[in-house]
Amino acid sequence: MGNLKTGHLVEAGLWLLLALVLFIFSFEFNKPIEIYKFGASGWPRAIILMIVLAALGQLAWHWKRGEGGATSKLNAAADDSVEAPEDHSSLNWYAHTFAMVAIPFIYLRVPDFLGGMMGLPPDGLGTIKLLTAFPLMALFGWMAYRNQVGGMLALPIFFGALLEDMGFYALAPVFAMCVMYLMGERRIGWMAGVAAGVFGILLFMFVKLLYVGLPTGNIHPFYDFGTWIVTILQ
């Protein structure tokens, strides 16, 4: 095993797995192009091969050197990596965090899937989305309370996932307050004031002055709220 550690094997395994998945999917577009000998899959497969070589090279390097330091002064010079704190690098922490990151994707997939199964019209789908969103929000809140850093990682993705349906105007102030809470702020007055200030600046700058159309949402009553604000401002 040389100087290899389990982490090195997992890292190499993930890269090789990624390469394998990408290679399998490359058959979907492995079509010839009349004017180009290598076709649509030539370039991606060359990159996949290089990923495999680099992953194996890294594994061999770890085998010889272990964790090692930077392999050159150039690497040491611009290394923008960060050290993981001990209590945030356990398997438990990763599992909990990735479970939280999965919540927004559940929201993005499940309502459409259920709506499709039930053959619902768009209005009905909105109800399903609301019924899915609120329990997921509660679950997210409970998990984020126990793991604030994980919450901070997953919260923006959840915000992004809800944006299409609930709109920027309704979500942004709540999002701002949640970010402040997860970053350790507990003074409610300050949180509300900063959220209102930030929201106001953004609305004035982008909606009032520059006429940027931000997502209004497409579920009632969020859509109505978003269009009401836009109407007032413009």
Binding site: I51, A54, A55, G57, A78, D79, D80
Partner: peptide
Amino acid sequence: SVGAKTLWKGWLSIL
């Protein structure tokens, strides 16, 4: 050769 901890990680990042 810039930005990663090792050259291997630099190459994998670019790839």
